[in-house]
Write a protein that binds this DNA or RNA. Structure first.
Lengths: 189, 189
DNA sequence: GAGATAAGTAAACAGCCGTTTACTCGCTTG
DNA sequence: CAAGCGAGTAAACGGCTGTTTACTTATCTC
């Protein structure tokens, strides 16, 4: 085991990072405080001291990963293409907050926290970014598709969404995203 | 407490039903054997005796709810419309297997079981129903949209998907489903 | 009605969990 | 160099979990 220099700030952020990783891969219920602190090489009591409780640790870990600009940075003309590109290509590198959301939805306390955070940090800002009377509906469609894509990909990783997206599925996904921002309605009213 | 007549078959199926309800509303990890058997008014040891273990109970409970004909019974011309109708209108009545899937994805054992069952009982039959070289991709798109819809609706129940679907979102969802079965490709190749 | 079969129970098991308490000891400041 | 603050630790607490063992008791058959 590596000798850790005594540095509270560093240790705190190490625990936070380890918690994000654990919550994303195993969910809230299956990630023990002992597991999380063990990967940092530190005593479980420290996590409680720094964050107050496992729940508070969860909230801070998730909150730090939520950023609506991830969804709003593409320009609207090539919205779908850029979004899929960003999700598929870049996504392997960073920890995805949606993984935490989905994998932690079994625990009611964790779910309540996640619900509040996603509404405040993602859903409402996204609805405002879309704007107009149907901004709220568009935001819901957008998140439905994103949640579906990520959930399905992480729950069933051997599938077509994984790795090299096959071109047909990729086009379908791009078009589905694009149709939301374009506000396209089918002819049949 | 009601007096239960001694009837092993009835008790077994009562436990199974209670387990489905519990797994769907609270997920695998948060549903204790004690909780499940308590709602039936029966001893926890009975569940183990009848099903072998909590994992086997989970597998049987989920398996009994999976039925690909739920997705394949609409005729292909009005596929999207009928599917959304079936999901939105009928769905409040029965226990939805996708709720179990999503809420149980935190536990690795439960996830492994769910993964195998969904592949065998839903994904592969659906791919065969679509047929052709891109049946597999269509099945993936289909399940992505369904998983996204249900996941988002059950994780964020105050939203537009809930109750009376607003017309714009409903049309968007119908069209998205329909475009899969039609095999529509965007003009841009 | 007596005995056998099996449905159901009570209680304990070992092993986890988040959290608390009391403690050690490294580093910084005088 | 000594004092003290605080980073970090060890160990235990109470409570929960799935499962097992030994037991009771209702029901059915002869």
């Amino acid at each position: 085991m590596l000798i850790r220099k005594r540095d509270a700030d560093q240790t705190r952020s190490d625990i936070l990072r380890a918690a994000q990783q654990a919550f994303a891969t195993r969910g809230y219920a299956a990630s023990g405080v002992r597991d999380i602190t063990a990967t940092v090489g530190v005593n479980p009591a420290l996590a409680i001291r720094y964050f107050g409780s496992k729940e508070k640790l969860f909230e801070e870990a998730l909150n730090a990963l939520l950023d609506v600009t991830m969804l709003t940075q593409p320009d609207r003309a090539n919205f779908g293409k850029q979004l899929v590109e960003a999700f598929v290509v870049d996504d392997a590198l960073r920890i995805n907050p949606l993984e935490i959301l989905v994998r932690s939805s079994g625990d009611s306390d964790a779910h309540a926290i996640a619900y509040r955070l996603l509404c405040d940090r993602i859903h409402r800002p996204l609805a405002e970014w879309f704007g107009g009377p149907d901004g709220h509906a568009k935001s819901t469609q957008m998140l439905t598709l994103a949640v579906g894509f990520f959930t399905y990909r992480l729950l069933y990783p051997l599938d077509a969404w994984q790795g090299q997206l096959d071109p047909a599925s990729r086009e379908w996904l791009e078009q589905a995203f694009q149709s939301i921002v374009d506000g396209a309605r089918p002819a049949q009213s």
